[in-house]
Design a protein around this nucleic acid. Structure first.
Lengths: 326, 326
DNA sequence: GAAAATTATGCAAACGTTTGGATTATTTTT
DNA sequence: AAAAATAATCCAAACGTTTGCATAATTTTC
């Protein structure tokens, strides 16, 4: 591996000049800069980023920490962030926590210890609160997205969760469903708290009462949705607003099993616009969160040094599962 | 940030002893080792991995380079590899190339420059050959999986592509389909070459001839599958073996559009067992590749220093799309 | 109890880069 | 042509760790 010292030796100058030349520092003459660039090219020089990062106390890595990579929502967020960050010269590394905040702490500490330029975080669902985050990352710049801790300072990119859930629930009401329950997700996460609030607001705005008996908590994966939907049926529901698409899918499993017709007898709306929602039979109505844009917004927030909260709108996509009045 | 020098100062010993103590080197007395460990704990010491990596010329990072993270096949590979590697003390970083080998080269160089302990690679489909890989990574240990370059030496983990495609095609024959075409994928990739070979073997083994007019190349995504299936219909096909699930999905789009009944009038088998194949209507028969196990195998191959090729079996999952004789 | 063997620690260099301040070379000013 | 100002380069330290070799401390051997 060629080093800047090798280049310096070959040109009869010092490593510091080579370093400055490569960095485009105006303190070095145009002529020598070109000579250095050419020699570097010839000798196949590539910067030792480890040495560089050590000396600078900072890397060009941006770490993205998310619950799971195989959720289209998250992989699209990554896509958006990656595009912007790569253009700005950063390398993106992705860490998944599988919803374990212990794993998340490890990932965060790791990134801090690699002197990441920034960390983009969407926290694990089992996190009790956000205290551990700051402890884990020290003063590494933090951009939270989607699942954010309100008590952890710094830039935040969130979906219009309350508004979105309001739209979804209002839609179910307009379609004529009488008893609309909710698969609420985890109340440890602000995003789900807000979705539930939107659900409630829509009900109460339509003169209906909020009934906690038909709100099913801790629902996040397909199996939970399946079990919760069974209870919802017993409780006399004829529709469910689901705070995730996977729980909506699980609910559909349960309904099909019982021979309940969707949307005629039962309405369903999910959240996230996962690709499969357009493939199931019936197709599933859902809330799209514009994840690619959220990723881009996170990247720009970092690059521009923003520390405010940005809200990205959610869009209701009406498909078959809730479209009773065709 | 506390350093080993801080700990050394606090204990009246030297950094070298602290370093050895933390590394569990037997050259340091048990007593001082415990003192160091306790002081490190007290002072909240965390190793500066950048400095450590620089000195050692090697990091504890394993890079996984794949075309896309939002393919269940790949995200499950990652899951398997991550589990094994984390237990062995490595940090996994994931890079997606989006099927661009230019992006892949950047990712590989990057990992080399970060002195990655190993790179796990499933190459981009547009790669002309494997020459660039060795150039990009130098002597970083390389484990190729799924999409491998036969001419690039080192450990390889591959699916039993030929055998799998043989099983899938034989199944279509047994189901009574007369004219079975193929969505073959890209012939730049060994995996797809072998799948096509398995398809051909099955046809010829059943006394049928291989007809290149009903083999559709460069099919990888849904849209390609849609277009190719239209041509397949014109060419009189009544079944397709698809070397990917997304192309099978596209084919289904085209068939539905034309009002062709699946599986009665047309049979489909995909490859990869993406989650959605069990959700569509009809559900899609497919080949499962045991991705989690492939990821684990890759990790073990690295940890054990293996350099041979391991073949992971493929399993035919018969669902509705090919099950004519119910 | 001195020599030898063993154990524990210290010293100093190295990894490759970056950067503040010093030095030398060049240009401008008077 | 000397002084002053500017430009270009060099020097040397620093980032925090690891590690071969040297030294010091302790234990064993005779």
């Amino acid at each position: 591996m060629t080093t800047i010292t090798d280049i310096a030796l070959a040109l009869g100058i010092t490593p510091s000049t080579v370093s400055r030349a490569l960095a485009g520092n105006p303190r070095v003459k145009e002529e020598t800069r070109l000579a250095v660039l050419q020699m570097a090219q010839e000798m196949g020089y590539e910067r030792n980023v480890v040495a560089s990062d050590l000396r600078r106390g900072l890397s060009r890595i941006v770490g993205i920490v998310i619950p799971r990579i195989n959720r289209e929502f998250f992989s699209n967020c990554i896509g958006g962030a990656e595009k912007v960050l790569k253009d700005a010269g950063y390398n993106v590394i992705i860490c998944q926590t599988l919803e374990s905040y212990q794993a998340e702490i490890k990932a965060l500490k790791n990134l801090k210890n690699y002197r990441a330029a920034a960390i983009f975080l969407s926290h694990a669902i089992d996190a009790p609160n956000g205290k551990y985050v700051r402890e884990a990352i020290g003063d590494t710049p933090l951009i939270q997205f989607d699942r954010v801790f309100p008590d952890v300072p710094g830039a935040k990119i969130v979906g219009a969760n309350c508004e979105g859930a309001y739209k979804a629930t209002s839609h179910l009401i307009k379609q004529g469903y009488k008893r609309i329950g909710a698969l609420a997700g985890y109340m440890t996460s602000q995003a789900y708290i807000e979705r539930l609030a939107g659900y409630r607001l829509a009900l109460e705005g339509a003169g209906r009462s909020f009934d906690n008996n038909i709100v099913f908590y801790d629902t996040l994966v397909r199996e939970n949705g399946y079990l919760a939907a069974q209870k919802a049926l017993e409780a006399g529901c004829d529709a469910l607003y689901c705070s995730g698409d996977f729980t909506a899918l699980g609910a559909m499993d349960a309904l099909k099993e019982k021979g309940v017709r969707i949307p005629e007898e039962f309405g369903l709306v999910g959240t996230a616009n996962e690709g499969f929602t357009a493939l199931t039979s019936p197709t599933i109505s859902t809330l799209s969160q514009h994840p690619y844009e959220m990723g881009q917004a996170a990247a720009h927030a970092f690059l521009d040094g923003r520390t405010d909260t940005q809200v990205i709108p959610m869009e209701l996509i009406i498909r078959q599962s809730s479209n009773k009045k065709h």
